[in-house]
Design a protein around this nucleic acid. Structure first.
Lengths: 152, 152
DNA sequence: CCTTTAAATGAAAATGATTATCATTACCAT
DNA sequence: ATGGTAATGATAATCATTTTCATTTAAAGG
């Protein structure tokens, strides 16, 4: 079995003819250090101490580029701003549990065996029945976390 | 077994002390007639012929109210605007298949038996493990519909 | 039916996230 | 080092949604 070399984002950018710039390094480094699912503004805020001259525009552009190249994954949890996370073997693929009050997000990937199997099965059924070419799915659970359940 | 009377939205509003107004009637009637998952602007456009004097503001306000009272269900498919649909026994509960190119949305509720069972099982596991009170879930599939697969 | 009054409405402005414009700057191949 | 081109940042523009506030209206009582 051929072991695929794990490409970091610098190589990915180079591969596609994009330049490795200081802002891009800073932005990606924030994603690496922050973890979680930050949105554009959170990245901006975290950057303001170290690199105050990087504009919000550049952050949006870099994120857009990285999503397009598969370096970042984009999520929409319905709270009004898109969220992102570095895509790699470790983060791929997982589901979420989202607190509807405080927006805390838990990601889990310790699927039940049946979980994976069944989703594939459903997917196959749907592809035939509705003539769709299904590429991905989202299974997210919404509710209240412990803290928000208590403070009510 | 007591048969619960099916309340229509007028009764729901009255119950909660809200008034039954002409704009509200028109807006809800659009949802009833249109079907699907319209967004605020689509409702507005569909209203413009019959009731040109209903403002977009009122549509947003009515929608917000109806979502809060459980008359409408709110969805976010990540295409930049929230979408809604009348909540009732018939529409509840379903999953979606969404075309990433043309945003066509198919909803299905002919779940495999295992589909329902397994999701409950996963939910139970997650509630214990992460101390969450899970209220609902979203299982949506994303891909390309027949037409968009072809025209490529 | 007519009055009263708080709730509902509409127009317009405000907001907040994201995108486009455009002049300036900085990679990087030569 | 340097030139060409992509990248950047400031600013303005969009677009969906929310807020403000003066005006209108549903519905309760007489």
């Amino acid at each position: 079995m051929r072991r695929k070399r794990i490409r970091n984002w610098e190589n990915r950018l180079r591969e596609e003819g994009y330049k490795i710039t200081t802002p891009r390094k800073s932005i990606l480094s924030v994603f690496e250090q922050l973890g979680g699912h930050p949105n554009a503004r959170e990245v901006f805020n975290n950057l303001s101490s170290q690199s105050p001259d990087i504009g919000l525009t550049t952050i949006y552009r870099t994120i857009e580029l990285c999503v397009r190249l598969g370096i970042l994954k984009k999520y929409d949890f319905g709270d009004g701003h898109s969220r992102y996370e570095i895509a790699n073997e470790k983060t791929d693929h997982h589901h979420h549990i989202i607190c509807e009050k405080c927006s805390k997000i838990i990601e889990y990937r310790d699927f039940l065996d049946e979980e994976t199997t069944l989703i594939k099965k459903i997917q196959n059924k749907l592809e035939k029945k509705y003539d769709f070419n299904i590429k991905q799915h989202v299974l997210d659970f919404y509710g209240l976390c412990k803290e928000c359940s208590d403070n009510k």
